[in-house]
């Protein structure tokens, strides 16, 4: 198991809603997306698969290149592929943008 953290200080848009999607089942993960009390976004990942920090970084770089929001993202992961991770993140965004 590995814990990974990222910061995206350039994410500034104020977010008011929160979202929870996904299940920590094999090949899947859950996301909690909450408004951050200050500017910038923070990502906290707990994953059962070690050694994929760079892949996580790439996924979140891509995610925050399109999404602007001062949020805290918490993830529990049970081996979701990068594609599934992005889909879950987009699903969470869909919930808060509704």
């Amino acid at each position: 198991m590995e814990k990974i953290e990222f910061n995206y200080p350039e994410a500034k848009r104020l977010i008011t809603k929160r979202a929870h999607v996904g299940v920590v089942g094999s090949g899947d993960m859950e996301v909690l997306l909450e408004p951050n009390s200050e500017e910038g976004a923070h990502v906290f990942i707990t994953t059962s698969v070690n050694g994929f920090g760079d892949a996580w970084r790439s996924v979140f770089d891509r995610f925050f290149s399109k999404f602007d929001g001062a949020v805290r993202i918490y993830i529990n992961d049970a081996g979701a592929t990068p594609g599934s991770v992005l889909l879950r993140l987009e699903q969470a965004v869909e919930v808060i943008e509704q």
């Binding site: 198991m1 929870h20 920590v24 859950e30 909690l32 707990t46 529990n76 992961d77």
Partner: peptide, 24 residues
């Protein structure tokens, strides 16, 4: 006591297993 309360199992992480925010 939903997932936003983040009351997870304190034992799973110690054994290298990712917990869940609502402990399932």
């Amino acid at each position: 006591v939903g997932p936003f309360d983040r009351i997870e199992s304190p034992w799973l992480a110690k054994q290298g297993i990712a917990p869940q925010f609502d402990d399932g």
